[in-house]
């Protein structure tokens, strides 16, 4: 089983790094082959919104940079971890730059799911998503927004298992890790 950890850190932050290492350790202990990408260290241009990845070079972005490789790895993983500081209730710009470049991996065609319009999937097998948002102190509004965002992403990306977890820096790390471990069991059962 492959897990891809997309690290959307904006700066060096000890708490953030510590929780990240614990997660990687746990994934490896459970038998995942883990790859972590520090997104601020790679070249990923912004999506140009041209939709050529749907109608001219189907399935691939025309920008030849690291964004293509990350999209490929996302498709080929069983589990993707969106790991990011919570920024105004959403993801950091570093994590978002690769999520925007993920759209070549779905189809342009519209379909109706859950009573709403969404796109059809390009690939039969799709990755589960666990999103981990790190926040300095509890903030109800930001946490609720983050969870809702992850839910909506999972609808669009068709994740078999999806979960949003918030780690606030005032909380006990062990409690958080045991919560993460329980979710992992669900991913393993569905993979």
């Amino acid at each position: 089983m492959k897990a891809l950890l997309l690290n959307g850190s904006l700066k060096n932050d000890n708490d953030f790094n510590m929780i990240c290492s614990s997660i990687v350790e746990l994934l490896e202990r459970d038998g995942f082959e883990v790859e972590q990408i520090m997104l601020k260290d790679i070249e990923v241009a912004a999506c140009q919104g041209c939709f050529e990845c749907w109608v001219k070079t189907p399935g691939q972005c025309k920008i030849d940079d690291d964004g293509r490789e990350v999209a490929r790895k996302m498709v080929q993983s069983n589990l993707i971890i969106h790991f990011s500081p919570i920024i105004f209730g959403g993801y950091s710009s570093e994590l978002k730059k690769v999520l925007d470049r993920f759209i070549p991996t779905i189809l342009p065609f519209f379909t109706k799911r859950n009573g709403e319009t969404h796109h059809k999937y390009r690939y039969k097998s799709r990755s589960s998503i666990i999103a981990i948002g790190v926040i300095d102190k509890p903030d109800e509004e930001e946490e609720a927004t983050f969870k809702e965002l992850v839910y909506r992403n999972s609808l669009n990306m068709g994740a078999p298992v999806h979960e949003a977890l918030v780690y606030n820096k005032t909380q006990n790390e062990e409690d958080f890790i045991s919560g993460f471990s329980n979710i992992l069991k669900r991913v393993e059962a569905k993979t």
């Binding site: 904006l10 912004a46 920024i87 993801y91 710009s93 978002k96 925007d100 992403n153």
Partner: peptide, 20 residues
């Protein structure tokens, strides 16, 4: 802005981070 993956396009989030 346009909705990108249920949120704002990455450069817009970057602008917000910088302004904040």
């Amino acid at each position: 802005f346009p909705l990108y993956v249920d949120s704002l396009p990455a450069p817009v989030i970057k602008a917000m981070e910088l302004i904040k």
